[in-house]
């Protein structure tokens, strides 16, 4: 198989794996990790598919997009972690109270 598609499939796998963990785990730190894994999955799809033309140089535009995405992800992670500590300080737990959906 063309390795581009292999990595893109791994990206899809990471995306769904992260989504599962995001829904199932209650601890906020795990949810934040899960979001990061999902983001890695999306980035992998974006870049892997850029290399799928055999024998051609990869398309630099998705590369730039992913670098942008990585910086956005680290910003969001920093904000989320600080907020998690606030939740901890206010409620005594690093989890959200009952999910309103259930």
């Amino acid at each position: 198989m063309n390795p581009a598609f292999l990595y893109a499939l791994v990206g899809v796998g990471l995306f769904t794996l992260g989504l599962y963990a995001l829904i199932v785990h209650a601890h906020l730190l795990r949810k934040i990790l899960a979001i990061n894994v999902m983001a890695s999955g999306v980035f992998l799809v974006l870049v892997a598919l850029a290399t799928r033309t055999q024998g051609a140089a990869p398309d630099p535009v998705p590369h730039a997009m992913v670098i942008t995405g990585i910086v956005v992800a680290v910003s969001a992670t920093a904000l989320a972690l600080a907020l998690m500590l606030r939740v901890r300080a206010e409620t005594g737990r690093a989890e959200l109270a009952e999910e309103p959906l259930e």
């Binding site: 999306v42 974006l46 995405g69 904000l79 206010e90 109270a97």
Partner: peptide, 25 residues
């Protein structure tokens, strides 16, 4: 407010990632 903000952040990031995967495709 802080719990609400946290939930909002997670939802917002999740929504963005769904959107971004669509952009990639």
């Amino acid at each position: 407010a802080v719990s609400g903000a946290m939930r909002y952040l997670l939802v917002s990031l999740l929504g963005s990632l769904f959107y971004l995967l669509g952009v990639a495709l």
